[in-house]
């Protein structure tokens, strides 16, 4: 029983972090209909920001407030100068924007390697391996904090999208771009802001992950993959769906690791992904309509 409960807790805590990685992706995919294959690389960059700030004595949780605006600006620049110009260009493949994000991801990774080399960097904090116990079940303090922050960000995003004018414009663009344009929404500006927001959110995930994990230039790829799995599970553009998708993926990986074997961790994630694509297109969002 302890094994089961501990696995459950581990999966849910990890899922919280995954959710935060997924929210940014789901926004971008929902609004622009493109997969951002540089998503994990943006997170990697935020982790390096956290690392550099840490060497100057800034706590990872404080660096949230620096990394998020920085990555917001980077996201805005990427959308404005690299992705939006592609919308006007006539090409054979509509996927040019996706391929562009591949190029951006490569550049980000290699720039990081250039500046920081391939060495592993890590942040040591007083609380990174602190734990507390409920019964026999251990909770990692850092992951629990990450979980709580992830939940509050999601709640904030939910409120923002539902209650503010900007949020409503974003949702309108996601639902029907042409109609939104007709209603007077400046969709070009909306896509720029959305990409910035998505980048800032994944930056937050990076700051929270940095103390419990480590940092190297190639870490982006696997997290990009996790982000799109979460997005497909949750449904495009759905923040609540991202939480569901993140926790589902976290749980599936943990349960898979305990009951099948850890080497099947990634296979479990990919299998769920393909099953959802085939049998529940639209993801969790289709069931709940949120």
């Amino acid at each position: 029983m302890d094994v089961f409960l501990q696995t459950l807790v581990a999966g849910i805590l990890k899922g919280g972090l995954y959710a935060l990685i997924g929210i940014g992706m789901t926004l971008i995919m929902g609004v622009m209909g493109i997969i951002n294959l540089a998503h994990g690389q943006l997170m990697m960059l935020a982790m390096y920001v956290t690392f550099v700030l840490n060497t100057m004595g800034v706590d990872p949780y404080v660096s949230l407030f620096i990394a998020m605006p920085l990555l917001f600006m980077l996201g805005v620049a990427i959308q404005k100068f690299l992705l939006n110009p592609l919308m006007k260009v006539e090409t054979i493949l509509p996927e040019n924007q996706v391929l562009m994000t591949v190029g951006i991801g490569m550049v980000l990774t290699e720039v990081a390697r250039f500046v920081f080399s391939s060495d592993y960097k890590y942040i040591t904090t007083g609380y990174a391996d602190r734990t507390f116990y409920i019964g026999n079940i251990s909770f990692s303090v850092a992951l629990t904090i990450a979980f709580v922050i992830a939940l509050s960000f999601t709640a904030a995003m939910f409120w923002f999208l539902l209650k503010t004018d900007l949020g409503r414009s974003i949702r309108a663009t996601a639902q029907d771009k042409d109609a939104a344009t007709l209603m007077g929404v400046n969709t070009g500006r909306i896509t720029v802001i959305t990409f910035g927001l998505g980048s800032a959110l994944v930056a937050a995930a990076g700051c929270l992950l940095a103390p419990v994990y480590y940092i190297f230039p190639d870490l982006g790829g696997p997290f990009t993959a996790k982000a799109f799995i979460i997005t497909i599970l949750g449904g495009l553009g759905s923040t609540v769906g991202a939480i569901f998708g993140g926790v589902t993926l976290g749980l599936a990986e943990s349960m898979g690791a305990t009951y099948f074997g850890m080497e099947y961790e990634d296979i479990v994630g990919l299998t769920i992904f393909i099953l959802v694509l085939l049998f529940l297109p639209g993801g969790f969002k289709r069931l709940t309509k949120v």
Partner: peptide, 21 residues
Amino acid sequence: RQAHVLGFGILVIVVILYLPN
């Protein structure tokens, strides 16, 4: 030498932007 992948990434970006076909 360090930059061989970086160079390739930049090439891709430039090609997509200016030579989309």
